[in-house]
Amino acid sequence: MDNLFGYQTGQTVFHRLTGSAKLIIFLLLTISGVLSFDIRYLLLLTVIALLGLWQAQISWQQIRVIVILTVIFALLNLILIYVFAPQYGVHLFGSQHFILSSGPYALTQEQLLYEAMVLLKYLFSLPLALIFLFTTNPSQFSAGLNRIGVPYSVAYAVTITLRYIPNTQRQFFMIKKVQEARGYNISKKSSWTQKITGVVRILTTLIFSTLDQIDEVTQAMELRRFGKGKKRSWYYEQSFGKLDAIALILALGFLVLGIGLMMINHSRYWNPFS
């Protein structure tokens, strides 16, 4: 249980940005990437996201599982797109350049380009999300949310949730081991159905114990006057710095570039075949 998922302290550029600036940048870049179907733009975004991930000094061990799961999911998605809409790219770009065979399942350059773009969307968004999650102190983030107008009870709920992720992981680990020892097969050796029933059992236990904890925590917070006034202050309040301004301008610039490309292309799609 060495690799807990969530905020890790550090000294990188990303750690120094304020939580709210990071959230805005994350949203700006994600929106740009989701809207655009210009492969040049998506490639650039992916390169930036991956460079960022490297810069943020997040260890592979910590993110391995989520990366593998996402890649599997992405590949599955690509295969399914091909199975259900093998000529969607042709429909999109209005031309048909065959690579392999002919007929309804013929492989075309257009389809390949389309699927490459879908893959890139996964490839840029996952690193962005990971950077955000691993470098943002939940308290600073809540303070930031509250600052941009989100009610403090909602903002605080975010902190509490993030703060309980490691706890819940630890508890999951303990319950799993105890039940394995008892004889429920949840280990690598067991079959898929056994694993699934096992995990469902653990999760039910975990949910009940978490609900109990929520009750206790709520009471503990009220006893320390949470919810007393209309406003509250934040120990980890951060003021916007130069770094935040620069980062925000860069992110905005990137969005403008995306919109600019759309205007030049007269569409969200860049068509290299025309």
Binding site: P138, F226, S233
Partner: peptide, 26 residues
């Protein structure tokens, strides 16, 4: 169950934050 802060400092400050004390006071 009582800890809500991410750090010791923040946890000590919790009740003061709810009193809306200024950052310097915190």
């Amino acid at each position: 169950t009582q800890f809500v802060g991410m750090t010791v400092a923040e946890d000590i400050a919790f009740v003061l934050e709810n009193d809306n004390d200024s950052h310097d006071q915190l």
